[in-house]
């Protein structure tokens, strides 16, 4: 029982990260109908920018940037998070304007290939020595991880203990807040209505006076900001910031994309659902079957869902028009 609860806690924390990243994939797909392969690289940027900001801010407060003796005040974490979200939002905006906007009318395959190009570009520019470099760094701990809740399970003679850490709770709460804000934006505001209109049919939306270009830009900014938040939360939990082309990033992005597809790509709530489904399959599979194959479970689930329900759990069936 204790193991089960512990795995559940990890799955919830990781699932909210997947969900945050999946939201960016799903929003871009919903509006422009292409897989934004460069999205996972925005996550990488988010974590590297968080790292760079953290080691700049900590000395100002008189703390050792690489290994602060006393935990910095909580607002430092919040500032780093917000700044990296803003910076990544801007980068997302620029990428969309330069690389994707000229291809608005091009074949989808071409946009997909461009996205791969952008992804390779971000990875390799990030690896340059004067940008982030190609060696891993250690993120200073902005939040002291401590025991928040202690649950005791008595199974037989010896009681087992589950510890709920502060970082896991922070990840879950921050993601939940961001997702609620997004939910409000998409379903309750005029801009969100415009986004859904463009996703439904860009041509009619533009005839109805929806500024399509601005909506697309806004979508990219929003998705990139969420990706940056995910990047920040990821290095909060796993403090080793790997080099930008490292395959843990790519796997993170891939799994988030799988989450978006499983939930029904283009569907905002589906992405959140998919994120948690993926995390549960991964974590419980790793715990109860074998940790060596945890990536296999995710992709096997993807292929099975695609074969049974090609449009995902919450996606609407695709209508083919000639």
């Amino acid at each position: 029982m204790a193991d089960f609860v512990q795995t559940l806690m990890t799955a919830l924390a990781i699932g909210s990260l997947y969900a945050l990243i999946a939201l960016g994939y799903t929003m871009v797909y919903g509006i422009l109908k292409f897989i934004n392969f460069a999205h996972s690289d925005i996550v990488v940027l988010g974590s590297w920018i968080s790292y760079s900001l953290a080691i700049k801010i900590l000395p100002v407060l008189g703390l050792n940037p690489h290994n602060p003796e006393t935990p910095p005040p909580l607002w430092v974490g919040a500032v780093v998070l917000l700044l990296s979200m803003v910076i990544c939002g801007l980068i997302g905006f620029v990428i969309e304007r330069l690389a994707y906007k000229p291809l608005r009318r091009a074949a989808r395959l071409n946009v997909l290939i461009t996205a791969i190009g952008v992804s390779l570009l971000l990875q390799n520019v990030g690896q340059l020595t004067f940008v982030f470099g190609s060696s891993p760094q250690k993120m200073p701990s902005l939040i002291q991880d401590r025991e928040l809740i202690r649950l005791a399970f008595s199974s037989g003679e010896n009681a087992q203990v589950v510890v709920v850490g502060l970082v896991d709770v922070m990840i879950f709460v921050t993601s939940a807040v961001l997702m609620l804000v997004l939910e409000y934006l998409v379903f309750r505001t005029k801009l969100g209505t415009a986004m859904r209109a463009v996703s439904y049919n860009p041509d009619s939306a533009s005839l109805m006076g929806v500024p399509v270009d601005r909506v697309v830009s806004f979508t990219f900014v929003l998705g990139s900001a969420l990706a940056a938040a995910a990047g920040f939360l990821f290095v909060l939990k796993y403090p080793t910031v790997q080099q930008p082309a490292h395959f843990i990033w790519v796997l993170l992005g891939l799994k988030a994309f799988v989450a978006a597809v499983i939930g029904g790509i283009g569907n905002v709530r589906g992405a959140v659902l998919g994120g948690f489904v993926i995390a549960f399959v991964e974590q419980f599979g790793a715990f109860y079957i074998s940790p060596n194959y945890k990536d296999v479970y995710v992709f096997a689930l993807l292929i099975m869902i695609l074969l049974v329900r090609p449009t995902g759990l919450l996606g609407s069936p695709l209508q083919e028009k000639v």
């Binding site: 292409f34 989808r108 891939l254 990536d295 296999v296 993807l302 292929i303």
Partner: peptide, 22 residues
Amino acid sequence: LRLRGDYLAIVTLGFGEILRVV
């Protein structure tokens, strides 16, 4: 037989990654 375009691309990508892990 059932998928097209992007989805098929993801299946091929998934194949490569599964093979790598196996």
